[in-house]
């Protein structure tokens, strides 16, 4: 069947309220969706960041990628394993994926959207070079985050380009002039950021913190990793 016709049938079917099952082609949504996965797609009245959308892109490409944000009526999507950002309008969206091989698709991990967008940002800054982007710290951090695989070579450092405003020993505000956001840190956050004034790996950071706190690296690892995920996502910490 001609692609155009197939797409029209897909849109008509979904807009009538009936779900459709599609087979995934390609690896741009790994590990969330894999090649040959069967996804059930439904139309919705509204789509929200985090949703995995099926949409028609340029050159009549039918894509299934995650919605990162909506701006000025445009929907900005990106594959979890891709670097490009695609923007479409509402009429180009057929529906959203709700089941993967019959199982409900879970909500994305907490910082996935911010980290995914940071990868795209790096990609654009690298002149759309995927090779250069793959070497970048933020891409490697993102891959570790999404694949849940440790990368012992990643170096973390406090982002000195932000404004650090310390009220006292127990309260720190970090202001990002670019986004206008303010992030607040208590004593523990202040200690971790102090340890990140000099670039270090996660293991080195854990060792530094264990000198301050009476703990073992394994005991604090999960909390420190969560702290790093959050602070890399909001750019208080940079990774290389």
């Amino acid at each position: 069947m001609d692609n155009n016709l197939a797409h029209k049938i897909l849109f008509a079917h979904l807009s009538s309220g009936k779900p459709v099952t599609l087979k995934v082609k390609g690896i741009s949504m790994n590990p969330t969706l894999s090649e040959n996965d069967e996804v059930t797609v439904e139309s919705a009245d509204e789509y929200f960041p985090g949703d995995i959308l099926v949409f028609l892109y340029k050159n009549n490409e039918l894509l299934i990628h995650r919605l990162l944000f909506i701006k000025n009526g445009r929907y900005y999507c990106k594959g979890d394993n891709a670097m490009r950002l695609e923007d479409v309008d509402r009429t180009q969206i057929a529906g959203k994926a709700v089941l993967r091989n019959g199982v409900p698709i879970p909500e994305p991990p907490e910082h996935l959207i911010e980290l995914s967008y940071l990868v795209n940002r790096r990609f654009r800054k690298n002149g759309y070079s995927s090779d250069l982007t793959k070497q970048s710290g933020i891409y490697r951090f993102y891959k570790k985050y999404i694949d849940k695989k440790e990368d012992k070579t990643m170096i973390y450092q406090k982002n000195d380009s932000l404004d650090y405003i310390q009220a006292d020993e127990t309260g720190l505000a970090v202001f990002d002039a670019e986004s206008g956001n303010t992030y607040l840190f208590d004593e523990t956050g202040i200690d971790i950021l102090k340890c990140l004034e000099t670039p270090c790996t996660l293991d080195e950071l854990l060792d530094r913190l264990c000198e301050i706190y009476d703990a073992t690296p394994d005991f604090i690892r999960a909390d420190v990793e969560e702290f790093l995920e959050q602070t890399v996502a909001n750019k208080v910490v940079i990774v290389s």
Binding site: D163, A167, T170, G171, A173, F175, A177, G180, T182, D186
Partner: peptide, 25 residues
């Protein structure tokens, strides 16, 4: 805590203030 005070004070103005480094200071 200082962080709690910060959070409440940021919610307390009667008008919208531009958020910038000076304001946060």
């Amino acid at each position: 805590t200082t962080v709690e005070k910060f959070t409440e004070l940021m919610k307390s103005p009667i008008t919208l203030y531009d958020t910038n480094a000076e304001y946060i200071r």
